[in-house]
């Protein structure tokens, strides 16, 4: 019953977004265009080495990486939840949210799924269109690998989600989410969404491995591209779960303290 209510909220949020269909179409053109620009850059780069492999990865792998990353990035992103949560906390609206039977964070997550579908559907469409146009996209080696990829994708989403909640509660004491996001965007540049980590110098790769961001997007991508043994896949899951638990505990701790303060502000 409760889950049904969340579904409804997601649905309404999706419908709300779809009413601005002109913006929607321009958003799709926008995304396709961005992708095309980036593909042009990869083409030009590989052109300079006559399409021979670089760092052991072929041109086809690179294109596959980039296109699949469009889906991975969109699916795992939880952007926007922190901003809304911050808004509701500073305006005190969160106090009324807490009176509702549904959990305030649950409402926000449901709503964000509505919006996510809105962004996610075009990226899936773009992917399939690219497969048709570009061709030569590598598919996962086996159904097993693909299943592992999907699982890892979901875990990646949870990492971003918990991180987003940490950011929201963190922002409540220190700086605005908007400011925080600029700092964080430096690290998301290191998450593999823009450039595969194998192109980084090894010391930078080591830094990235110590951060949760690559666990969200880069790990699923690696599983998709294959070449990882079952043992490695399991250890990758382990890393992801480790980050989820760690970030969840951190945000829960911050949230409990924040809630007390909201009650004080609201009272």
């Amino acid at each position: 019953m409760k889950l049904y209510a969340y579904f409804l909220m997601a649905y309404f949020s999706l419908k709300e977004s779809l009413t601005y269909w002109k913006d929607y179409i321009s958003f799709i053109i926008f995304s396709v265009f961005r992708l095309v620009l980036q593909l042009c850059a990869w083409y030009a780069l590989y052109h300079s080495v006559d399409f021979s492999p670089v760092m052991g990865r072929s041109y086809e792998t690179m294109i596959t990486y980039y296109l699949v990353m469009e889906i991975v990035g969109n699916f795992t992103s939880a952007n926007g939840i922190a901003g809304t949560l911050e808004q509701r906390m500073s305006s005190g609206e969160i106090a009324t949210d807490m009176l509702r039977p549904a959990a305030p964070r649950g409402i926000l997550i449901a709503r964000s799924w509505g919006e996510k579908l809105y962004y996610f559907i075009p990226s899936v469409l773009i992917f399939f269109a690219s497969v048709v146009v570009v061709g030569g996209i590598q598919l996962p080696a086996s159904p097993g690998v693909f299943t592992a990829f999907l699982l890892s994708l979901c875990l990646g989403y949870l990492i971003n989600l918990t991180f987003e909640l940490v950011m929201a509660t963190f922002a409540f004491w220190f700086v605005e989410v908007n400011t925080l996001r600029w700092f964080v965007s430096f690290f998301t540049a290191l998450s593999g969404t823009a450039v595969p980590l194998w192109l980084f110098p090894s010391w930078l790769q080591a830094v990235c491995r110590a951060l949760p961001f690559q666990a969200a997007a880069y790990i699923p991508m690696q599983i998709y591209l294959g070449g990882t043994s079952p043992a490695e896949i399991f250890s990758a899951f382990g890393t992801q779960v480790f980050w989820i638990i760690g970030l969840f505990l951190l945000q829960e701790w911050l949230w409990q303290r924040g809630k007390r303060r909201i009650v004080v502000l609201g009272g």
């Binding site: 850059a41 030009a44 780069l45 590989y46 300079s48 080495v49 670089v54 760092m55 823009a194 450039v195 192109l199 980084f200 110098p201 930078l204």
Partner: peptide, 9 residues
């Protein structure tokens, strides 16, 4: 880091 691995673009 993207371009560094190539001769250039």
């Amino acid at each position: 880091s993207m371009i560094m691995n190539f001769p250039g673009i």
